[in-house]
Design a protein around this nucleic acid. Structure first.
Length: 699
DNA sequence: GAGCACTGC
């Protein structure tokens, strides 16, 4: 393959990070690398060298002596399951306090918790437990090691802002920089000033370790004061753990590729032709790319004939029906090679065993938020070097592997961004602001973030929350509305709709609608069944629009005894409906707790519409009088928008509508649309529409 | 008549 590929010179993963300010440096030997001695570790502190023979000793030493420890780990270093056990053994869970370990994903929480319970030989839910949404597998006064999603820990802070239940908190996968992780890190830094005895362990990839360390480094003045006492040191330490993964040989394209879908297909065929057995994982950007690549690969295999017996090509993306998704986990029959063509889902969320070859397109779909237009866009963008390494690492889980990057080494070294833009800088800030406000953080603009969101996004969020009556003139949470909204784990506009429904007497209906809106889609769709699923949808269609249609579906599902056959017959996604039931029950519990009235309006859909408007008045649109193709304009910003073809109001084109969300492609499409009476807008949100008129002059 | 990277509470 040498005529197409240039072997790379990227250094192996898991190397020492330079800590310039006299912190600690650790290097652990890789289990498979010949360059480092097996099981050996060394500690250097300035000129002092401490012999440490075990990873365990090093961790405990750091925890004893440092308020904050930054751990650099590579995938598969074992830190995730080992560190909590060491901490427990060393007696860090004392006086009824717990050790918390967070993960960004529910599945990872469950997996790590059960593995640790198994390693410790205890029953899951006793000494070792976990908490994720809808599932609390812990026992008060018995559980000492608690695994949880970072989102759950944030929710816990609303009742216990200093997290006094915990003596040590370990945040895993911090380099992924999810919104919850970033909020959590900011808050933990704050907590640490009030609770200097709290130990933090931040687990991150090498590439982010330095910036994490900088973030947790206290201001110089403060550090001098603290160092006078003989208390714990405030310097964060960096611990570098070499991953257990096998070496992955990196190959770069000699020339920039024109068409990465075609290049991915050709590369896969070359691997199949010239490389020994082993499965292939191809990273592309989305459903369209993936379906095209599957088609191309299948066609080319058939026309050339020579590969036909040996390849099993499987697509993988989250929108794929459950059964199709599970195919990728099955082992290829003897003598066959499995090729999985995937989105980013295989980068972190799913782990495929048996992958030896990775083909990396260098792109992924990423969300970007424009605070000026208040619109989120999904665009194909270059990945970061951190992602590229993560993707390559997927080839080294079972034995030494190879990674083919469909870009040049020059591009990788000189042009690819080092790390991705943190999610918080690419998102709408509305939910985030309300969470901080609920935790008593008044100076939102001055909050110490690992990465600050843009001022525009913050201001836009404050405006939206003010217009919803969630924040007052002083940007404080209103009572009771603001505090109630903060308790509900949904988009604030949805939460506002629920609170309004309690006053209007239609909360049973609105909670159902909120639950349906919180799942991806309750319809089964896909190529080949469009006609049937459209017809099924018409059986439920309501003249008022999609929200009321959801009520009809829920009613039918309920009357069928929550039957999966009923769902199948009506092209309704059974798994989605189960989730609707779960969310609905949680929302009812929360509604009761915060003093809302649970009541049904029976068939008075006028009340339902009023409640929806109370949350979504800012999304009102009217049909352009001269428009022949269903063009609407938003009242707020006069933006051109269209009803999405998946809506029951598609081609009905009522004069006035309100939408739940926009999806931007070549046009802006409104998803989940409801007809409204414009007088209702002035009724429910007179302040907003007056304000908008004066804004209009400004534009 | 069209489209949805991926999480999470």
């Amino acid at each position: 393959m040498s005529q197409f590929w240039k072997p790379g010179t990227e250094r192996p993963q898991g190397r020492v990070v330079d800590d310039e300010e006299g912190g600690l440096l650790f290097l652990f030997g890789s289990h498979h690398s010949s360059s480092a001695r097996h099981g050996y570790a060394s500690i250097e502190k300035q000129r002092q060298r401490l012999p440490v023979s075990k990873y365990r000793t090093a961790i405990l030493y750091l925890v004893e002596t440092h308020a904050t420890t930054i751990i650099v780990g590579e995938t598969g270093s074992g830190k995730t399951t080992q560190i909590p056990q060491y901490l427990k053994e060393a007696g860090w869970a004392t006086g009824g306090r717990l050790i918390a370990c967070t993960q960004p994903r529910r599945l990872a929480v469950q997996a790590v918790a059960s593995r640790v319970a198994e390693e410790m030989g205890v029953k899951l839910g006793e000494e070792v437990g976990y908490t994720i949404r809808f599932e609390d597998v812990t026992k008060p006064d018995v559980t000492v090691l608690k695994f949880l999603t970072d989102g759950v820990l944030l929710r816990e802070m609303m009742d216990d802002p200093l997290l006094t239940k915990y003596s040590v908190i370990m945040v895993d996968e911090a380099h992924e920089r999810s919104i919850s992780t970033d909020i959590l890190l900011g808050l933990l830094k704050k907590i640490q000033r009030r609770r200097p005895e709290l130990r933090l362990i931040i687990s991150s990839a090498t590439i982010e370790a330095k910036s994490m360390s900088d973030f947790f480094r206290m201001r110089k003045k403060r550090r001098e004061i603290e160092n006078k006492d003989h208390g714990p040191q405030v310097e964060p330490a960096i611990l570098s753990v070499e991953g257990r993964g096998f070496n992955v040989q990196i190959n770069y394209a000699e020339e920039p590729v024109q068409d990465y879908v075609q290049a991915a297909v050709s590369t896969t065929l070359l691997i199949h032709e010239r490389e020994p057995a082993g499965d292939v994982l191809v990273f592309l950007t989305g459903q369209d790319d993936i379906d095209a690549a599957v088609q191309l690969l299948t066609d080319q295999v058939q026309t050339t004939g020579k590969h036909s017996s040996g390849l099993i090509v499987l697509p993988l993306y989250s929108g794929l029906p459950r059964a199709d998704q599970e195919l990728v986990f099955s082992q290829a029959p003897r003598g066959k090679r499995k090729v999985v063509i995937s989105t980013n889902i295989a980068e972190t969320s799913l782990t495929l065993e048996g992958i030896v070859y990775v083909v990396d397109s260098g792109f992924s779909k990423q969300r970007f938020y424009n605070p000026i237009s208040d619109i989120e866009n999904l665009v194909v963008a270059p990945i970061s070097r951190a992602s590229a390494r993560q993707r390559a690492g997927r080839a080294g889980r079972v034995r030494p592997g190879k990674c083919y990057r469909l870009y040049t080494e020059e591009y990788f070294l000189n042009h690819m961004p080092n790390a991705g833009i943190p999610e918080i800088q690419r998102s709408n800030m509305v939910s985030c602001v309300i969470q901080l406000k609920a935790l008593g953080i008044d100076n939102i603009l001055g909050f110490d973030w690992p990465a600050s969101p843009s001022a525009e996004a913050m201001i836009r969020a404050l405006e939206v929350l003010y217009s919803l009556g969630i924040l007052d003139d002083d940007a404080k949470l209103t009572s009771p509305t603001g505090f109630q909204v903060a308790e509900i784990p949904l988009d604030p506009m949805v939460s506002k709709m629920i609170i309004a429904s309690s006053q209007l007497g239609c909360s049973e209906e609105i909670i159902t609608i909120a639950a349906v809106l919180s799942v991806q889609s309750i319809w089964i769709s896909g190529r080949g069944i469009q006609k049937e699923s459209d017809e099924a949808k018409l059986r439920f269609a309501a003249a008022e629009g999609d929200h009321v249609t959801f009520l009809n579906v829920y009613k039918g599902f309920h009357q069928s005894g929550k039957s999966s056959q009923w769902c199948h017959k009506n092209y309704v996604n059974y798994h989605a409906m189960r989730k609707v039931l779960e969310v609905r029950e949680q929302l009812k519990r929360i509604a009761k707790r915060i003093g809302l009235v649970l009541k049904s309006c029976e068939s008075d859909m006028q009340l339902v519409r009023k409640a929806v408007i109370a949350g979504f008045f800012a999304n009102a649109c009217h049909l352009e009088a001269y428009s022949h193709d269903g063009m609407y304009k938003t009242l707020r910003g006069s933006q051109e928008v269209y009803i999405h073809p998946s809506s029951v109001l598609f081609r009905v084109n009522p004069k006035w509508v309100i939408y739940h969300s926009l999806v931007s492609t070549d046009r802006q499409y409104m998803r989940n649309v409801l007809t409204i009476d414009p007088s209702c807008l002035l009724d429910v949100a007179p302040h907003f529409y007056k304000l908008q008129q004066s804004n209009h002059l400004l534009f």
